[in-house]
Write a protein that binds this DNA or RNA. Structure first.
Length: 719
DNA sequence: AAAAAAG
């Protein structure tokens, strides 16, 4: 049975069917798992072919499917030999069930549910049928109307732009309304999910993780190698782990500058001896002893640690004073009229400081590193000039059918990619350029279809982008501008390598833009390989603490936690609760819901439709409480969240900054409440230190007035 | 631990 996968793998069409079957059948899955060689054999090629799923070769390929199914059946019987003996009718039963299962459970999510309680099962039976049958088709039908590929879809897209301002909330809202214009039903489904989720998922997860992490592990080996050359980031790492034993996880960048010498002496040298710089054999723009990429200060490049320090200094040096930009308009910065108009429609009348700083250098083609605090307008800061640049590069040329994208924007989460597109698409459309989103969790067909027609700007997450590149469906060779949003995050362990590979697919010497509220030396590796003499910007005097956010830390007894949380979220106004794990996020949402406080969850164990829908529910105000993992920590913009609660304190100061940045956006006020137990108090203090945030610590118990106050409720004077 | 492809 490994065979029928491999040979089929040659041709996508052939390949597709068997895989589809294999994937959708729970039985098969189990069989494969039980079958060692088979699993390992198909784990490799399997990584590509499943992508054909969702393609609709289905009816046409019926024979192929049958053939495969027969083999599969044989394999199953083999693998199930033991079981067959145990339970008499099992063989036949399976045989019968198998074909049905193809129809029934295309979706992973169903499976867990089915095996458990009855109610969920019923609702799931409804849903899968609907969602699978419909979902691939419907969303497409709703929006671009695929049938008329060329003409209609082009008509459609512009249509979206008709409501530029609106478009922020529109897209998700509409599509979900369409899909399930039955709110009450959805609610129910939601809850059911939550229930089934806890039980069902773990097994999948545990299966998945290991595999993936193995893939990644080699990446560690790369790191050091990568670092050898510049040895720069090596400085960072050792230092981190040594100095900060207690506070290791936070330690990060800010303080590092203090003691560069020590770690530098030790490690880097060794690393140079150990491994020849791998990257030297590749065309390395920044390579060479006198490359002055970060520093651009020749005098400083004598030693790498100096360069590192210079980076930091330079960050300061390039800081923009907010008042320097007063009175400057977007037009003055070099953006065309249409774009200026589109920006105005988006509510951006005049540039924020970070925008005023970066637009010009980006238009000049410079590589840019930019740091602007959460909610400071970074998306437009790179988006507007990016559109302008693409436009200029295409001036006078016809936009051909099937043209390859000229710009790429990478984001760490799908929601963020979507949100970025919602900002950039109207800007792009105002000058006749097309964007498309490329992210996982949804069928590929529509994305591939858009690429076939030709797009100018691709916005997406690394996984799917790399996937489509590998499949030859996405050509990045003409990408002359690449943006990394949340760049520091994109340089973390699981992200760095895919990002690196993707960037290598872009045009030689393509312009790179790195943005983040917490841009730090985590990006050094990327900068070394990909950026040439980058300009570095940040907005002066705009540290996170200068904002409009009030920070509070509540010292609590662990046993009171659930009730305190319940009390805090029982309020008017939008509340975003952060939990460390998916399961806990799910649990809390359920807890709140059970207590009569309508709440939804957002985390990676939900399918993309639910993720998008739940986030949209908060945005639209249909629900006031969203419980999320760190999937929502970065970049997500919801206008009026006035309370952020960290049910679990973050481990990293950067995470704290990003989470709390979900409130107090664009000058609004907001409160961040972090719950910690007494034991963690010290760590919390250190973390806040690093974040440069001042927050009072209060010991609270159930029913304390402070909780009432923070929730915005009247404190009963009698009590 | 979470996220990111699919499973």
């Amino acid at each position: 049975m490994p065979k029928n996968k491999k040979p089929a793998g040659g041709r996508p069409a052939k390949n597709f069917e068997p895989r589809y079957g294999a994937k959708t059948s729970y039985q098969d899955r189990k069989r494969r798992d039980a079958d060692g060689p088979s699993r390992s054999a198909d784990s490799r090629p399997g990584s590509k072919s499943p992508n054909h799923r969702g393609y609709r070769a289905e009816p046409a390929k019926a024979p192929a499917k049958r053939r495969w199914t027969a083999q599969e059946r044989a394999g199953r019987d083999e693998a199930r030999g033991i079981r067959s003996q145990a339970g008499g009718a099992s063989a036949k039963g399976h045989g019968d069930r198998a074909p049905r299962s193809y129809d029934d459970r295309p979706r992973r999510d169903d499976r867990p549910a089915r095996s458990y309680d009855d109610r969920p099962r019923r609702s799931y039976d409804d849903r899968p049928a609907r969602s699978y049958g419909d979902r691939p088709a419907r969303p497409h039908d709703d929006r671009p109307r695929r049938e008329d590929r060329p003409a209609r879809s082009y008509d459609d897209r512009p249509r979206r732009d008709d409501r530029p301002a609106r478009s922020y909330d529109d897209r998700p809202a509409r599509s979900y309304d369409d899909r399930g214009g039955r709110p009450s039903h959805l609610d129910r489904v939601d809850r059911d999910d939550r229930r089934s989720f806890g039980d069902g998922r773990p097994s999948y997860r545990s299966d998945d993780r290991p595999r993936r992490s193995y893939d990644e592990r080699p990446s560690r080996d790369d790191r050091p190698r990568r670092d050898d050359r510049p040895a720069r980031s090596y400085d960072d790492r050792p230092r981190r782990s040594h100095d900060d034993r207690p506070a290791r996880s936070y330690d990060d960048r800010p303080r590092r500058d203090d003691r560069p010498a020590r770690s530098h002496d030790d490690r880097p040298r060794r690393s140079y001896d150990d491994r020849p710089p791998r990257r030297d054999d590749r065309p390395h723009r920044n390579d060479g002893p006198n490359r002055s990429d970060w520093s651009a200060t020749p005098a400083r490049d004598k030693a790498h640690e100096d360069r590192v320090d210079v980076v930091h200094e330079r960050l300061q040096a390039e800081a923009i004073q907010a008042d320097n930009v007063a009175g400057t308009g977007f037009g003055d910065l070099g953006l065309g009229q249409n774009i200026v108009k589109a920006l105005a429609d988006l509510g951006a009348a005049s540039p924020f400081p970070i925008q005023a700083a970066t637009i010009t250098p980006i238009l000049e083609g410079k590589d840019v590193l930019a740091r602007g605090r959460t909610g400071s307008g970074k998306t437009i800061a790179f988006g507007a000039p990016l559109v302008e640049s693409v436009l200029r590069a295409q001036a006078g040329q016809r936009r051909e059918f099937g043209r390859s994208p000229k710009a790429l924007i990478l984001a760490p989460t799908r929601e963020l990619a979507l949100q970025i597109d919602r900002t950039i698409q109207p800007i792009a459309r105002s000058v006749g350029l097309f964007t498309t989103q490329i992210y996982g969790g949804v069928p590929q067909a529509r994305q591939v279809g858009a690429l076939k027609k030709g797009v100018d700007i691709v916005i997406g997450t690394p996984g799917r982008i790399e996937d489509l590149v590998d499949q030859g469906k996405l050509d990045l060779s003409e990408v002359r501008i690449a943006v990394l949003d949340e760049a520091d995050h994109m340089c973390e362990l699981g992200f760095f390598e895919p990002v690196q590979r993707i960037l290598r697919h872009t045009a030689e010497g393509s312009q790179k833009l790195l943005f983040s509220a917490t841009l730090d030396r985590e990006v050094a590796g990327l900068v070394d390989e990909f950026l040439v003499d980058p300009a570095v910007y940040e907005v002066a005097g705009e540290d996170q603490d200068s904002g409009t956010i009030e920070h509070r830390v509540l010292i609590i007894d662990h046993r009171d936690k659930a009730e305190i949380l319940g009390s805090l979220v029982d309020r008017e106004g939008k509340t975003l609760v952060f939990a460390r794990t998916r399961a806990y996020a799910e649990m809390l949402a359920e807890q709140f819901d059970d207590a009569g406080i309508h709440a939804v969850a957002l985390h990676g164990d939900l399918n993309q439709a639910k993720r998008t829908r739940n986030l949209e529910r908060l945005t639209s105000g249909r629900v006031n409480v969203l419980v999320a993992t760190d999937v929502a920590a970065r970049g997500i913009h919801v206008d009026d969240i006035d309370l952020v609660i960290q049910a679990d304190a973050p481990d990293e100061y950067k995470t704290y900054l990003h989470r709390s940045g979900r409130t107090g956006r664009a000058g609004r006020s907001g409160t961040v409440v972090t719950l910690v137990t007494r034991q963690r108090r010290r760590r919390m203090t250190e973390l806040l230190d690093r974040a440069e945030i001042e927050a009072p610590f209060d010991e609270v118990r159930l029913g304390d007035d402070l909780i009432e106050e923070l929730a915005g409720r009247q404190v009963d004077p009698v009590a």
